[in-house]
Simulated scan of single mutants.
Amino acid sequence: MDSRQRQIKKVKDSTVTMTELVLPNHANQLGYLLGGQLMHWIDICAALSAAKHSNRVCVTASVDRIDFHHPIKVGEVVTLVASVNRAFKTSMEVGVEVYAESFVERKKIHTNSAFLTFVSVDENGKPVETNEIQPETPDEQKRYEEALQRRRQRLNTA
């Protein structure tokens, strides 16, 4: 039996930032980052955020959506920023924002957004309660409330 107590943690404590350089082996024939490669990076970044929040291994339960706003070119630098939007009993929603930056053109744009759900698991892979989360800023509070709406919608359509 695990003696860990649920804690109340802040959103900023779950923030993870990853940086990747888009190389030719990450690209399609047109020289743009493959969607699957970006999804892989998003999943890793979000999993790290969930683990940071829960202090446990976390597994992907669902990917609610990934919006592709702009293509990302070979040679650009991709920055992914993930944080927990809301924690439930054993699951949590993680939001990821993706930015592409061209150092040559001195331009940085928001290219993608994603919402994923992760579940905290124990050493045997069984779901366990996760820590609670306390939003502090108006943006965090908005994302906290929207996460509940997305969860209700997801559970109603399951």
Rank of each mutant, 00 (worst) to 15 (best):
M1L: 09
R4I: 13
Q5V: 15
V11A: 09
K12V: 11
D13A: 02
S14R: 07
T15M: 01
T17C: 02
M18E: 02
V22D: 09
P24C: 04
M39K: 08
H40K: 08
D43F: 03
A46Y: 08
A46N: 05
L48P: 03
L48E: 11
A51M: 10
K52F: 03
T60K: 03
A61L: 00
A61Q: 03
V63K: 04
I66D: 08
F68T: 04
F68V: 12
G75T: 07
V77Y: 12
V77Q: 12
V78H: 06
L80S: 06
S83W: 06
N85E: 04
A87Y: 09
S91M: 06
E93Q: 02
E97L: 11
V98L: 01
Y99C: 02
S102N: 07
S102H: 01
K108P: 04
A114M: 11
L116T: 11
D122F: 02
D122R: 05
N124T: 14
V128I: 15
V128W: 06
E129Q: 09
E129K: 13
N131I: 13
I133Y: 08
P135R: 08
P138V: 06
D139R: 13
E140I: 03
E146M: 11
L148Q: 06
Q149F: 07
R154T: 13
T157H: 15
T157R: 15
